[in-house]
Design a protein around this nucleic acid. Structure first.
Lengths: 207, 207
DNA sequence: GACAACAAACCAACCAGTTGGTATAAACAG
DNA sequence: CTGTTTATACCAACTGGTTGGTTTGTTGTC
């Protein structure tokens, strides 16, 4: 008889926080609005989280788990050649560019700028999340570098970070111009850069 | 006798706003704090600006003027070859990376993420500022493309935007990791990309 | 003495966080 | 099986402090 509310309030708060933080940022997402959107009262909110900052921290971790799972299960891991795998990662990132801007941009990049000076704990959590994601690319980059550009004067770590910088910057510009296409353009430029960094063969050059 | 305060309060408010917005963002910079920091009372603030948002808009324009002047007077414009001029621009950007993070990161990129959904006028002003700056690179990029890569499958506009995306993204990551070096690394990668996009000559390859 | 330039005190709305509870059900005793 | 206790999950109403913005009045200068 009693229809069980499928999703428990704590998870609902976390998911709603993800959506609101991505769209409106940290400060402008008030606890009241968040509670209303999640269908939870303020009392419950502070039952589950000791402060707004604690919720944000939990939301960031939640985000890292969700996106971690998304990327871990993505098809690009199946590509054998490390260079192709890296390129496939970028193609996968391009496929994620769908819907409105707040739906595909990165929570961490959005929050970092706002919390940099005011909420060190949040800033650190965002930094860790981005760094961890960059690290997942390291094996492919290192292998590709060894295979295709062993004498290159760039480090695998710096390229891994650079990919994330390009994506984050593309999100910033896309929001500034209110134009998602900019993200696709940036990924295309990044893809070309990776191709040029890791030449397959000094065959004949095409026209 | 009366020592004239060299800088009029309106300009002082604008400059203080620039500093505070860059460090703490829009929401967290309260009008009271801003007034105290600028040595102005709240009454004066609302005598000069009709709202906080109007002040922010004026601050963005002020920023565009100041940085516009900085770049307009920069030495890279003297470089004759367009490819070298573009590279010199990137080198100039690297020289700006000094002091603490809020001192060299971009106001526009910081504000855009925060105001995207909540203050369309500010978002638009930020977008315009970034776009205008990107446009200043167009002549060099177009000329370099014509000279060094006439058949390239990328547009000058997209590359101009891409340079800004890389810089903005580098600022995001630098703040996330609390490490300015990331900006220099990103500029180095971008520089290499430009070099590869605009090959000087298919001479012999170095080891 | 007219008017621009400031200043202090004030305000309604809103903020994160607190309070003092209730509903439900499992745990346990007799 | 019943009555009591206890723990969990939840909530409406409230609070003290802060916010952007106003009002009213005081300067300084021509």
């Amino acid at each position: 008889m009693s229809e069980p509310t499928a999703i428990p309030p704590k998870i609902r708060l976390l998911n709603t926080a993800l959506a609101l933080f991505r769209e409106r940022g940290y400060s402008d997402t008030t606890v009241d609005v968040l509670c209303r959107a999640a269908g939870v009262t303020k009392g419950s909110f502070f039952y589950y989280f000791e402060s707004k900052e604690a919720l944000a921290l939990a939301a960031i971790q939640h985000w890292n788990e969700v996106t971690g799972g998304l990327f871990a299960g993505a098809p690009y891991h199946a590509v054998a050649d490390p260079r192709e795998r890296l390129l496939a990662y970028l193609d996968f990132r391009a496929t994620l560019v769908r819907g409105g801007l707040p739906e595909f941009t990165c929570l961490l990049g959005t929050l970092v700028q706002e919390t940099f000076a005011t909420h060190p704990a949040l800033r650190a959590a965002c930094g860790e999340g981005i760094e961890n994601h960059a690290q997942t690319l390291l094996p492919a980059i290192e292998a590709a570098r060894k295979q295709y550009a062993p004498e290159a004067d760039w480090s695998a770590e710096s390229l891994a970070r650079h990919t994330q910088a390009v994506l984050q910057g593309a999100f910033v510009l896309a929001k500034a111009m209110d134009n998602p296409q900019i993200v696709l353009d940036a990924i295309a430029h990044l893809r070309r850069y990776v191709e040029l960094l890791l030449p397959t063969k000094p065959k004949e050059s095409e026209t």
